[in-house]
Simulated scan of single mutants.
Amino acid sequence: MKLKLNFIKLSKTEITSFVLTLIATLIGVLLAISLSNSEAAKKEKEDTVKLLNSANIIVKGTSNYTRELDSYITNLKDTVHVDSTAIRRIEKQNPIPYPDLLESIIANDIVSKNLSQYTHTEIYIYLLNLRKLAAYKSINYYQKSLEELELLLELESKFQEDEINLNQLKKEFAKGRNELAKKYRDKNVTELNN
């Protein structure tokens, strides 16, 4: 089959050369776009993991501070010369901390776009519960929720780094929640189902 053009006369080899150059250029451009997209996705995952690690540091800090507050108030209650009015005043002046910065990190476009749907949903459930439970009368359940949130963030980081898959994340989280439930059962923590 001969290609004949009235206004340009090209030989078969010139046409073949032109078509091959065009195809090679197209493949090169598509490859460059693919590599660029791949690098951008890799960078986003790395940034997501960094932000998740920062979120976990915030939750751990909140957890440690809450534990120290609880210990301090418990010690005050055991003291003979401190009355309940003084304890209530100290509790009012030192409210249970809430991890406000965690909300900002989770709302970040990079994090919210890359988090697994499961973790995203669970984190918001925990944040809602933490906001409701930030009181001394429910401090044990609050502490348990913070520890569960720590575990969830650690597992999501592993998921983002492709160390575990989504099913493993869910199983490990369920296992960790059960262990924490046993740990806090002795502290009269009310069991709530999510």
Rank of each mutant, 00 (worst) to 15 (best):
K113A: 13
A181W: 06
A32D: 03
E46S: 15
T74N: 14
K4M: 07
K42G: 00
I96H: 04
L76W: 08
V29N: 01
R89G: 08
S34P: 00
L146C: 07
E14H: 05
K77P: 02
E172R: 08
Y65N: 14
I27W: 03
S104G: 13
M1N: 12
Q160N: 04
I90N: 09
S116L: 10
V29A: 11
N167R: 09
I58T: 12
L52I: 06
E156V: 06
L52V: 03
S63Q: 10
D83E: 13
E91C: 10
L152C: 06
A40C: 00
E156M: 07
S138K: 12
Q160P: 05
Y184L: 07
T85P: 01
E14N: 09
H81F: 15
Y141K: 12
D70M: 11
I23P: 10
L102Q: 04
K182D: 13
T21D: 12
I15W: 08
H81M: 12
E154C: 00
A41L: 11
K4G: 02
Y124D: 04
K45W: 00
L51I: 08
E179C: 01
I110N: 12
I106S: 11
L51D: 05
V189G: 06
T62F: 03
Y118W: 08
S54W: 03
N194L: 13
K60Q: 12
K183S: 04
K42N: 08
A32N: 06
P97D: 05
A24P: 02
Q143W: 01
A135V: 08
Y65L: 15
L5E: 11
K2E: 09
V82S: 09
K60H: 09
K77N: 06
G176C: 10
N53Y: 02
I73C: 11
N53G: 00
K4P: 00
R177H: 08
G61V: 08
L180A: 11
D186I: 08
L101K: 14
E191H: 13
T16C: 02
K187Y: 13
K144F: 02
Y124A: 07
L5C: 11
L149A: 04
E172A: 09
K137T: 09
I27R: 01
L153R: 00
Y98A: 07
Y98D: 04
T13S: 10
A135Y: 05
R88N: 14
N129W: 11
S112Y: 14
I23Q: 04
I105C: 03
S54G: 04
N178I: 14
S84E: 15
Y141Q: 13
I123V: 15
I90T: 15
L76G: 03
L155M: 02
Q160H: 02
K183G: 02
K132A: 15
I110P: 00
L52K: 03
V111A: 09
A174P: 00
D186M: 07
A135H: 07
N193Q: 08
S138A: 12
L146V: 05
L10I: 11
K144M: 12
I58L: 13
E172Y: 10
A181P: 02
H120S: 15
Y124M: 12
Y72C: 01
D83F: 11
P95E: 13
E148V: 03
Q117V: 13
A107W: 02
D100V: 14
N94D: 06
S84M: 05
R89A: 15
I123D: 02
L153M: 01
P97I: 09
Y141L: 11
N165S: 01
I105Q: 03
Q93T: 13
T48Y: 00
L26Q: 06
T16W: 01
T121W: 11
L115H: 05
